[in-house]
Design a protein around this nucleic acid. Structure first.
Length: 295
DNA sequence: CGGCATACCTGCAAGC
DNA sequence: TGCTTGCAGGTATGCC
């Protein structure tokens, strides 16, 4: 689920609670998620202070005071939640709302209070890895990531360079984390609708004419930025698994223009929204506004 | 290269 | 009520 707006929402909520806390007790409840937990996870974390919570693409980065980074990816169904407890003896803490999908718990002490952060992930497509902040950009999971969509690096010239020799569809290009890192199925569909591009438009067709390419790419960049910013302001989208760290929901799902709106009227032209499959994933689009021969 | 299927895993809703 | 089927926000891999 979690795409950039959801992960960033989690980061913003975790940061004020976790930053400055000391990790007193770390417990895993199974051997692996998508990948095995790092063998020395407890040893590397316990006793350390959390310096800050950062983010790269859809990866949460929990940075410790010795430069260690715990990389947390939420996969499709991962979530973090916070529980505050009165108990003091950390090792004897009992989960208040224990769930069979609570896979990792971090007990912390911050300003005399005991806090527990719990990673829950029913489908276990998420994962926890360890790295160091000084070499984080070379970590195998991060080194091939493209630009942050909300940063200045995402611009028309960048897309022009990267797309002009490619034949792939715009949908596939925007989902490719090596080009832009952080978009997923929802926000790609939404951005394409806003920019009025067909999901099947070949990227080299989009940028074939230099003068029209500039306009088209600016339209695309603006649409991506706008939809991500609006989703962030709404606290992300909650479909089924994703929730805020206190269990509450984001509400951007109510503002979707195409995603999940098959058969409903296009908000621009009232044509029914269609759903189709591209590489096994649903694409929602308006056949009128996003006509394939329109650039 | 690109497009596609598959694999990983559980839960939910719809259809029969 | 139960069963089966398809679908779900992600990523990696392998095949044609």
């Amino acid at each position: 689920m979690p795409e950039l707006p959801e992960v960033e929402t989690v980061r913003r909520q975790l940061a004020p609670v976790l930053e400055g806390a000391r990790l007193s007790f770390v417990k895993t409840n199974r051997a692996n998620l998508r990948y095995p937990f790092p063998l020395n996870l407890r040893h590397r974390l316990q006793g350390r202070h959390i310096s800050r919570i950062s983010r790269r693409a859809k990866y949460l980065l929990i940075v410790l005071d010795d430069d260690t980074v715990m990389i947390s990816h939420l996969g499709m169904s991962g979530s973090w939640r916070i529980e505050e407890t009165e108990e003091v003896a950390a090792e004897s803490l009992h989960l208040t709302k224990s769930s069979r999908h609570d896979h990792l718990t971090l007990d912390m002490v911050r300003e005399g209070r005991v806090i527990r952060a719990i990673y829950n992930d029913p489908r276990r497509f998420g994962f926890i890895l360890l790295s160091n902040m000084t070499e984080i950009d070379n970590h195998p999971m991060l080194k091939n990531l493209g630009v942050e969509p909300l940063g200045n690096a995402l611009c028309a010239p960048y897309l022009f360079q990267r797309l002009r020799h490619k034949k792939t569809s715009l949908k596939a290009a925007l989902l490719d984390q090596r080009l832009i890192a952080g978009l997923g199925n929802i926000y790609v569909c939404e951005a394409l609708w806003r920019a009025r591009f067909s999901p099947w438009l070949a990227t080299n067709q989009l940028v074939c004419d230099t003068t029209s390419a500039q306009k088209a790419l600016l339209r695309l960049v603006s649409a991506i930025r706008a939809v991500l910013m609006e989703a962030l302001e709404a606290g992300g989208s909650t479909l089924r698994d994703y929730a805020h760290i206190d269990g509450s929901s984001g509400y951007f799902q109510h503002a979707f223009d195409v995603y999940g709106r098959e058969g409903l009227p296009c908000r621009m032209c009232t044509t029914p929204i269609l759903r189709t499959l591209q590489a096994g994933r649903s694409t929602f689009y308006c056949p009128t506004c996003q006509s394939p021969d329109k650039i």
